[in-house]
Design a protein around this nucleic acid. Structure first.
Length: 297
DNA sequence: CGCGGTCAAGTGGCT
DNA sequence: AGCCACTTGACCGCG
C-alpha cells in the first residue's frame, strides 16, 4: 500500500501550479512558468521519497493553458528531457502517479465544444505522463459528468464519446471515480462494463451517495475493475467529513480513529490511498505511520 | 506590500 | 437567480 496526497506540498516554499492570466499570456512567460513548475515538482517528489510517501497526484496546472488555443508552442519538445528525468526519478523510486482533470472535463456534455475542450485537456494530461515514460498504471481520473435529467442517456453518450473520440493514449490511462451526488459506485461500475475503464473509489463520496453497499464490499467491487498487469492495484481517494460543515466537505486534518477504522475494515485488500485532506502532507505523515503500525504499508 | 476581487473552462444543489 | 463547491489557490490591480 502506498499513501500520498494531491498536488501541493505545504512544507516546501514552491508551487508546481504557478500560472498567470490569459490576458498576460506570452510564450516567454509560459516557458518560464513551466520551468519553475517542473523544478518545484522535482523538489516535491524528492521530499516524498525522503518521507516514504509513494503516491502523488500531479497538478493539472503544470503547463498553463496547455489545452487552450492560445498556447500553440511545442512545450512537449522544449521540456522533453526535463519530463524524462522526472519520469526516471519516479520509476527508480517506485512512485505511483495520478492526475485529476478538473471539473471542466465533461465527456458526456450535450455541448460539443465542451466535449472537444475536455478531450484536449485529457490529451494534455496524458501526454505529461507519456513524456515521463510512465507505464499505464499512472492514471487520469475523471468523474462521470452531468446527468442532464436523464442519466441512462448521459451514460450512453459518455460511452459513445469514449469509443469514437478518445485517442488510445488517453483510454489506456482513463479511470472513472464515483462523485458525491450524481455518479454512484454502481453507475461507475456500469461505465466500466461499457468501456473497460477501472473504477477509482472515493470513500467519502460513497458515504454521500450509494446503493447500500457496505464499505468493504464497495472497495472490493471497485478493486475488481483493475487489471493488475495493466492498471496496477486499486487507487482510491480517502477523506472524512468535515464536522459541522456541508456534506462532502473534506476534513481539515485526518481523523486518525476513522482512518484506523477504515484500514481495519479493508484488511487484506491491496490498494494505494490518496488522502484528500486539506492539510496535505501533514496528514499523510500520520496516515503512513498508522498504516505501518497496522502492517499495511 | 498586503488585501480582495477575479480568473479558461461545467454541473448541480443549496439558499 | 445567484452562490458555492469541486482535486488544488494564484494573480494582479488597488489602496
Amino acid at each position: 500500500m502506498k499513501i500520498g496526497y494531491p498536488c501541493i506540498n505545504e512544507t516546501l516554499d514552491c508551487s508546481s501550479s504557478r500560472t498567470f492570466r490569459l490576458a498576460s499570456y506570452s510564450e516567454e512567460r509560459m516557458i518560464d512558468t513551466v520551468a519553475q513548475n517542473l523544478a518545484c515538482l522535482r523538489r516535491i517528489l524528492e521530499y516524498n521519497v525522503q518521507h516514504g510517501l509513494l503516491f502523488f497526484r500531479l497538478t493539472s496546472g503544470l503547463v498553463p493553458f496547455a489545452s487552450h488555443e492560445v498556447n500553440q508552442y511545442n512545450w512537449q519538445e522544449h521540456f522533453k528531457m526535463t519530463f524524462r528525468r522526472l519520469g526516471d526519478y519516479i520509476k527508480s523510486n517506485n512512485l505511483r502517479i495520478s492526475m485529476h482533470p478538473d471539473q471542466f472535463v465533461v465527456l458526456n456534455s450535450p455541448n460539443e465544444q465542451t466535449v472537444k475542450n475536455s478531450i484536449a485537456e485529457l490529451v494534455y494530461q496524458g501526454s505529461v505522463l507519456d513524456l515521463m515514460g510512465l507505464d499505464t498504471s499512472a492514471k487520469l481520473q475523471i468523474h462521470g459528468g452531468g446527468a442532464y435529467g436523464d442519466k441512462p442517456t448521459a451514460i450512453q453518450r459518455f460511452t459513445e464519446v469514449y469509443h469514437t473520440m478518445l485517442p488510445e493514449a488517453v483510454k489506456a490511462r482513463l479511470c472513472v471515480e464515483n462523485d458525491d451526488r450524481t455518479y454512484t459506485l454502481q453507475d461507475c461500475l456500469q461505465l466500466h462494463e461499457l468501456t473497460g475503464m477501472p473504477v477509482i473509489f472515493d470513500n467519502l463520496h460513497h458515504e454521500c451517495v450509494n446503493n447500500g453497499e457496505p464499505m468493504r464490499e464497495a472497495v472490493q467491487m471497485a478493486a475488481a475493475t483493475w487489471q493488475p498487469e495493466k492498471d496496477g492495484i486499486l487507487m482510491m481517494d480517502y477523506s472524512s467529513q468535515s464536522l459541522g460543515e456541508r456534506k462532502g466537505k473534506h476534513t481539515q486534518s485526518i481523523q486518525e480513529q476513522l482512518f484506523h477504522d477504515f484500514l481495519a475494515e479493508t484488511e487484506g485488500l491491496d490498494m494505494d490511498i490518496m488522502l484528500e485532506i486539506k492539510d496535505k502532507e501533514a496528514s499523510a505523515h500520520k496516515a503512513l505511520k498508522l498504516a505501518k503500525q497496522m502492517g499495511r504499508a
